[in-house]
Protein backbone atom coordinates (compact mmCIF):
# COMPACT_ATOMS: atom_id res chain seq x y z
CA UNK A 1 0.00 0.00 0.00
CA UNK A 2 1.49 3.33 -1.06
CA UNK A 3 1.11 6.77 0.47
CA UNK A 4 -0.29 9.60 -1.65
CA UNK A 5 0.45 13.05 -0.27
CA UNK A 6 -1.31 16.25 -1.27
CA UNK A 7 0.01 19.21 0.67
CA UNK A 8 -0.31 18.32 4.37
CA UNK A 9 -2.64 15.38 3.85
CA UNK A 10 -1.80 11.75 3.26
CA UNK A 11 -4.02 9.08 1.73
CA UNK A 12 -3.47 5.35 1.32
CA UNK A 13 -3.88 3.82 -2.10
CA UNK A 14 -5.44 0.39 -1.57
CA UNK A 15 -4.28 -2.57 -3.69
CA UNK A 16 -5.97 -2.44 -7.11
CA UNK A 17 -6.99 1.21 -6.74
CA UNK A 18 -5.96 3.94 -9.11
CA UNK A 19 -4.88 7.31 -7.71
CA UNK A 20 -8.26 8.68 -8.80
CA UNK A 21 -10.11 5.84 -7.01
CA UNK A 22 -8.29 6.68 -3.79
CA UNK A 23 -9.01 10.40 -4.09
CA UNK A 24 -12.68 9.85 -4.82
CA UNK A 25 -13.01 7.41 -1.91
CA UNK A 26 -11.38 10.02 0.34
CA UNK A 27 -13.55 12.84 -1.04
CA UNK A 28 -10.63 14.81 -2.44
CA UNK A 29 -11.98 17.55 -4.69
CA UNK A 30 -10.61 16.51 -8.09
CA UNK A 31 -12.21 16.90 -11.51
CA UNK A 32 -12.72 13.72 -13.54
CA UNK A 33 -15.04 12.29 -16.17
CA UNK A 34 -14.28 9.18 -18.23
CA UNK A 35 -12.00 7.35 -15.73
CA UNK A 36 -10.34 5.63 -18.68
CA UNK A 37 -7.57 8.00 -19.74
CA UNK A 38 -9.46 9.56 -22.60
CA UNK A 39 -10.87 12.86 -21.40
CA UNK A 40 -7.76 14.13 -19.54
CA UNK A 41 -9.97 15.78 -16.88
CA UNK A 42 -8.09 14.25 -13.95
CA UNK A 43 -4.61 15.39 -14.95
CA UNK A 44 -2.33 15.93 -11.93
CA UNK A 45 1.39 16.25 -11.34
CA UNK A 46 4.07 14.40 -9.44
CA UNK A 47 6.77 17.04 -8.87
CA UNK A 48 9.41 14.71 -7.38
CA UNK A 49 9.22 11.30 -9.01
CA UNK A 50 8.53 9.99 -12.48
CA UNK A 51 4.97 8.65 -12.69
CA UNK A 52 4.40 5.19 -14.24
CA UNK A 53 4.63 5.41 -18.04
CA UNK A 54 1.19 3.85 -18.41
CA UNK A 55 -0.32 6.85 -16.61
CA UNK A 56 1.04 9.29 -19.23
CA UNK A 57 -0.42 7.66 -22.34
CA UNK A 58 -1.64 10.21 -24.85
CA UNK A 59 -0.23 13.31 -23.10
CA UNK A 60 1.82 15.95 -24.88
CA UNK A 61 5.58 15.36 -24.54
CA UNK A 62 6.10 18.58 -22.62
CA UNK A 63 3.46 17.57 -20.08
CA UNK A 64 5.16 14.19 -19.72
CA UNK A 65 8.47 15.89 -19.07
CA UNK A 66 6.91 17.90 -16.25
CA UNK A 67 5.68 14.63 -14.66
CA UNK A 68 2.03 15.27 -15.39
CA UNK A 69 -0.09 12.13 -15.41
CA UNK A 70 -3.67 10.93 -15.42
CA UNK A 71 -4.88 9.98 -11.94
CA UNK A 72 -7.36 7.46 -13.36
CA UNK A 73 -4.60 5.47 -15.13
CA UNK A 74 -2.05 5.62 -12.32
CA UNK A 75 -1.45 2.57 -10.18
CA UNK A 76 1.38 3.80 -7.95
CA UNK A 77 4.65 1.88 -7.80
CA UNK A 78 5.96 3.89 -4.84
CA UNK A 79 4.83 6.64 -2.46
CA UNK A 80 3.93 9.80 -4.34
CA UNK A 81 3.59 13.49 -3.63
CA UNK A 82 0.85 14.83 -5.88
CA UNK A 83 -0.10 18.34 -6.91
CA UNK A 84 -3.62 19.06 -8.06
CA UNK A 85 -3.94 21.55 -10.93
CA UNK A 86 -5.54 24.29 -8.84
CA UNK A 87 -3.35 23.93 -5.80
CA UNK A 88 -2.08 27.18 -4.33
CA UNK A 89 1.31 28.24 -5.51
CA UNK A 90 4.63 28.82 -3.93
CA UNK A 91 6.03 32.33 -4.47
CA UNK A 92 9.68 33.41 -4.45
CA UNK A 93 10.87 36.98 -3.98
CA UNK A 94 12.95 38.35 -6.85
CA UNK A 95 14.69 41.69 -7.32
CA UNK A 96 14.23 43.90 -10.37
CA UNK A 97 17.62 44.42 -12.01
CA UNK A 98 16.58 45.87 -15.38
CA UNK A 99 13.54 47.89 -16.40
CA UNK A 100 13.76 49.70 -19.72
CA UNK A 101 11.52 50.19 -22.73
CA UNK A 102 11.83 47.87 -25.74
CA UNK A 103 9.46 50.04 -27.77
CA UNK A 104 6.85 52.71 -27.06
CA UNK A 105 4.65 50.43 -24.98
CA UNK A 106 6.66 47.36 -24.07
CA UNK A 107 8.84 47.16 -20.99
CA UNK A 108 11.80 44.83 -20.60
CA UNK A 109 11.79 43.64 -17.01
CA UNK A 110 14.56 41.43 -15.65
CA UNK A 111 14.16 39.92 -12.21
CA UNK A 112 17.07 38.25 -10.39
CA UNK A 113 16.85 35.48 -7.80
CA UNK A 114 19.25 34.29 -5.09
CA UNK A 115 18.90 30.65 -6.04
CA UNK A 116 18.39 28.86 -9.33
CA UNK A 117 14.88 29.35 -10.71
CA UNK A 118 13.62 26.18 -12.36
CA UNK A 119 11.82 26.65 -15.67
CA UNK A 120 11.75 25.78 -19.34
CA UNK A 121 12.08 28.56 -21.90
CA UNK A 122 8.56 29.46 -23.06
CA UNK A 123 6.78 28.82 -19.75
CA UNK A 124 5.04 31.53 -17.76
CA UNK A 125 4.85 32.62 -14.12
CA UNK A 126 2.43 34.65 -12.08
CA UNK A 127 3.74 37.98 -10.79
CA UNK A 128 2.13 39.30 -7.64
CA UNK A 129 1.81 42.83 -6.35
CA UNK A 130 2.02 43.38 -2.56
CA UNK A 131 -1.78 43.89 -2.44
CA UNK A 132 -2.28 40.41 -3.95
CA UNK A 133 -3.16 41.45 -7.52
CA UNK A 134 -1.71 38.74 -9.78
CA UNK A 135 -1.05 38.45 -13.52
CA UNK A 136 0.58 35.83 -15.73
CA UNK A 137 3.60 36.73 -17.85
CA UNK A 138 5.69 34.61 -20.17
CA UNK A 139 9.39 34.13 -19.57
CA UNK A 140 11.50 35.39 -22.49
CA UNK A 141 14.95 33.97 -21.67
CA UNK A 142 16.45 30.51 -21.20
CA UNK A 143 17.62 28.99 -17.92
CA UNK A 144 21.17 30.14 -17.27
CA UNK A 145 23.69 30.61 -14.53
CA UNK A 146 22.66 34.18 -13.76
CA UNK A 147 19.38 33.08 -12.12
CA UNK A 148 17.31 35.73 -13.84
CA UNK A 149 13.94 35.83 -15.54
CA UNK A 150 13.20 38.20 -18.40
CA UNK A 151 9.73 39.52 -19.22
CA UNK A 152 8.24 41.74 -21.93
CA UNK A 153 5.40 43.75 -20.42
CA UNK A 154 3.02 45.52 -22.73
CA UNK A 155 1.27 48.55 -21.28
CA UNK A 156 -2.45 47.93 -21.57
CA UNK A 157 -4.92 50.81 -21.53
CA UNK A 158 -6.15 51.01 -17.92
CA UNK A 159 -4.25 47.80 -17.15
CA UNK A 160 -3.79 48.02 -13.41
CA UNK A 161 -0.92 45.57 -13.28
CA UNK A 162 0.97 46.64 -16.39
CA UNK A 163 0.70 50.31 -15.38
CA UNK A 164 2.13 49.46 -12.00
CA UNK A 165 5.08 47.67 -13.61
CA UNK A 166 5.62 50.48 -16.14
CA UNK A 167 5.18 53.47 -13.86
CA UNK A 168 6.05 52.48 -10.33
CA UNK A 169 8.48 49.59 -10.26
CA UNK A 170 12.16 50.59 -10.12
CA UNK A 171 15.38 48.61 -10.16
CA UNK A 172 16.04 47.25 -6.69
CA UNK A 173 12.35 46.66 -5.92
CA UNK A 174 11.21 43.14 -5.07
CA UNK A 175 8.37 41.23 -6.73
CA UNK A 176 6.79 37.91 -5.76
CA UNK A 177 7.07 35.33 -8.56
CA UNK A 178 5.25 31.97 -8.74
CA UNK A 179 6.66 28.68 -9.94
CA UNK A 180 6.90 28.32 -13.72
CA UNK A 181 3.85 26.87 -15.46
CA UNK A 182 2.63 25.93 -18.90
CA UNK A 183 3.58 23.31 -21.43
CA UNK A 184 4.45 25.51 -24.39
CA UNK A 185 8.20 24.92 -24.58
CA UNK A 186 10.95 23.29 -26.62
CA UNK A 187 12.15 19.75 -26.03
CA UNK A 188 15.52 18.83 -27.57
CA UNK A 189 14.30 15.85 -29.57
CA UNK A 190 13.64 15.25 -33.28
CA UNK A 191 16.09 18.04 -34.08
CA UNK A 192 15.57 17.71 -37.82
CA UNK A 193 11.90 18.63 -37.43
CA UNK A 194 10.72 21.96 -38.88
CA UNK A 195 9.64 24.51 -36.26
CA UNK A 196 7.18 27.29 -36.91
CA UNK A 197 6.75 30.04 -34.32
CA UNK A 198 3.90 32.51 -34.71
CA UNK A 199 3.30 35.36 -32.28
CA UNK A 200 1.58 38.70 -31.96
CA UNK A 201 2.84 41.55 -29.77
CA UNK A 202 4.56 40.32 -26.62
CA UNK A 203 3.88 36.79 -27.84
CA UNK A 204 7.47 37.25 -28.96
CA UNK A 205 8.59 36.77 -25.35
CA UNK A 206 7.98 33.02 -25.00
CA UNK A 207 8.86 32.48 -28.66
CA UNK A 208 12.22 34.23 -28.19
CA UNK A 209 12.94 31.89 -25.29
CA UNK A 210 11.91 28.84 -27.32
CA UNK A 211 14.01 30.03 -30.28
CA UNK A 212 17.12 30.61 -28.15
CA UNK A 213 16.65 27.22 -26.56
CA UNK A 214 16.24 25.42 -29.92
CA UNK A 215 19.27 27.15 -31.46
CA UNK A 216 21.29 26.47 -28.32
CA UNK A 217 20.46 22.77 -28.56
CA UNK A 218 21.63 22.74 -32.18
CA UNK A 219 18.22 22.23 -33.71
CA UNK A 220 18.98 21.40 -37.35
CA UNK A 221 15.54 21.60 -39.02
CA UNK A 222 14.23 24.88 -40.46
CA UNK A 223 12.94 27.38 -37.88
CA UNK A 224 10.48 30.07 -38.99
CA UNK A 225 9.56 32.94 -36.70
CA UNK A 226 6.60 35.10 -37.73
CA UNK A 227 6.13 38.12 -35.46
CA UNK A 228 3.22 40.43 -36.11
CA UNK A 229 1.67 43.69 -35.00
CA UNK A 230 -0.20 46.50 -36.65
CA UNK A 231 2.52 49.15 -36.73
CA UNK A 232 6.26 48.92 -36.93
CA UNK A 233 6.62 50.83 -33.64
CA UNK A 234 4.89 47.97 -31.84
CA UNK A 235 7.40 45.34 -32.94
CA UNK A 236 10.66 45.01 -31.05
CA UNK A 237 13.99 43.15 -31.19
CA UNK A 238 13.78 43.37 -34.97
CA UNK A 239 17.52 43.99 -35.51
CA UNK A 240 18.45 41.30 -33.00
CA UNK A 241 16.28 38.73 -34.81
CA UNK A 242 17.62 39.75 -38.23
CA UNK A 243 21.14 39.25 -36.92
CA UNK A 244 20.26 35.79 -35.59
CA UNK A 245 18.85 34.92 -39.01
CA UNK A 246 22.17 35.94 -40.59
CA UNK A 247 24.09 33.80 -38.13
CA UNK A 248 21.93 30.69 -38.44
CA UNK A 249 21.27 29.32 -41.90
CA UNK A 250 18.19 27.39 -40.80
CA UNK A 251 16.51 30.33 -39.04
CA UNK A 252 14.08 32.58 -40.93
CA UNK A 253 12.62 35.72 -39.38
CA UNK A 254 9.53 37.29 -40.91
CA UNK A 255 8.26 40.47 -39.20
CA UNK A 256 4.69 41.21 -40.33
CA UNK A 257 2.66 44.41 -40.20
CA UNK A 258 -1.10 44.45 -40.68
CA UNK A 259 -1.41 48.27 -40.81
CA UNK A 260 -1.14 50.50 -43.86
CA UNK A 261 2.40 51.75 -43.42
CA UNK A 262 4.86 48.97 -44.22
CA UNK A 263 8.55 49.95 -44.46
CA UNK A 264 10.98 47.93 -46.54
CA UNK A 265 12.05 44.66 -44.96
CA UNK A 266 8.65 43.98 -43.45
CA UNK A 267 5.86 41.81 -44.83
CA UNK A 268 2.41 43.30 -45.23
CA UNK A 269 -0.47 41.32 -43.78
CA UNK A 270 -1.72 39.43 -40.76
CA UNK A 271 0.92 37.24 -39.20
CA UNK A 272 -1.26 34.10 -39.23
CA UNK A 273 -2.17 34.47 -42.90
CA UNK A 274 1.42 35.08 -43.92
CA UNK A 275 2.65 32.08 -41.95
CA UNK A 276 0.05 29.83 -43.58
CA UNK A 277 0.82 31.17 -47.06
CA UNK A 278 4.57 30.71 -46.57
CA UNK A 279 4.48 27.16 -45.24
CA UNK A 280 2.27 25.04 -47.43
CA UNK A 281 2.60 21.65 -45.77
CA UNK A 282 3.09 21.33 -42.01
CA UNK A 283 3.11 17.55 -41.79
CA UNK A 284 5.70 16.56 -39.16
CA UNK A 285 6.30 20.20 -38.13
CA UNK A 286 6.28 21.44 -34.57
CA UNK A 287 4.15 24.53 -34.04
CA UNK A 288 4.35 27.21 -31.33
CA UNK A 289 1.61 29.84 -31.11
CA UNK A 290 1.62 32.73 -28.64
CA UNK A 291 -0.35 35.92 -28.25
CA UNK A 292 -3.84 37.06 -29.16
CA UNK A 293 -6.34 34.32 -28.19
CA UNK A 294 -8.27 34.54 -31.47
CA UNK A 295 -5.11 34.23 -33.53
CA UNK A 296 -3.93 31.31 -31.40
CA UNK A 297 -7.20 29.38 -31.62
CA UNK A 298 -7.59 29.95 -35.32
CA UNK A 299 -3.99 28.91 -35.97
CA UNK A 300 -4.32 25.73 -33.89
CA UNK A 301 -7.03 24.65 -36.27
CA UNK A 302 -5.34 25.84 -39.45
CA UNK A 303 -1.93 24.32 -38.69
CA UNK A 304 -3.67 21.05 -37.81
CA UNK A 305 -5.52 21.11 -41.14
CA UNK A 306 -2.20 21.75 -42.87
CA UNK A 307 -0.93 18.49 -41.47
CA UNK A 308 0.63 19.26 -38.07
CA UNK A 309 -0.26 16.65 -35.46
CA UNK A 310 -2.15 17.97 -32.40
CA UNK A 311 0.56 16.64 -30.12
CA UNK A 312 3.07 18.84 -31.96
CA UNK A 313 1.03 22.03 -31.59
CA UNK A 314 1.94 24.07 -28.54
CA UNK A 315 -0.09 27.16 -27.77
CA UNK A 316 -0.15 29.92 -25.21
CA UNK A 317 -3.12 32.25 -25.60
CA UNK A 318 -2.67 35.51 -23.72
CA UNK A 319 -5.74 36.21 -21.70
CA UNK A 320 -6.40 39.79 -20.89
CA UNK A 321 -7.96 40.28 -17.49
CA UNK A 322 -10.76 42.81 -17.35
CA UNK A 323 -9.76 45.58 -14.99
Amino acid sequence: MYKLTIGEKTYYCQPGESVLDTFLRENVNISFACKKGTCHSCIVRSPNILPPESAQVGLKNTLKKLNHFLACLCHPEQNMVIKLPDQSEFYTEGTVVVNQLLNRNTLLLIIAFKDAFEFNAGQFVNLQRPDGLTRSYSIANIPQASNTLEFHIRRLPDGRFSEWLHDEIKTGDTIAVSEARGHCFYLPERKEQGLVLVGTGTGLAPLAGILTDALGHGHSGPIYLFHGSREVDDLYRVDEMRKLAEQHQNFYYIPCLSGKHVPEGFTHGRVNEIALATLVDLKDWRVFLCGHPEMVNQMKKMTFLKGASMKDIYADAFLITAT
Partner: peptide
Amino acid sequence: MDKQIDKQKAFFTMAFGGPNN
Protein backbone atom coordinates in the same frame (compact mmCIF):
# COMPACT_ATOMS: atom_id res chain seq x y z
CA MET B 1 -8.92 22.04 -30.49
CA ASP B 2 -7.23 20.20 -27.64
CA LYS B 3 -10.52 19.47 -25.88
CA GLN B 4 -12.11 18.51 -29.17
CA ILE B 5 -9.38 16.00 -29.96
CA ASP B 6 -9.91 14.44 -26.54
CA LYS B 7 -13.63 14.16 -27.29
CA GLN B 8 -12.98 12.59 -30.67
CA LYS B 9 -10.73 10.07 -28.95
CA ALA B 10 -13.57 9.21 -26.63
CA PHE B 11 -15.84 8.79 -29.65
CA PHE B 12 -13.39 6.45 -31.39
CA THR B 13 -12.76 4.49 -28.23
CA MET B 14 -16.50 4.00 -27.99
CA ALA B 15 -16.82 3.07 -31.69
CA PHE B 16 -14.15 0.43 -31.15
CA GLY B 17 -16.02 -0.93 -28.16
CA GLY B 18 -13.20 0.11 -25.84
CA PRO B 19 -13.41 1.46 -22.31
CA ASN B 20 -15.70 4.45 -22.08
CA ASN B 21 -18.09 5.74 -19.50
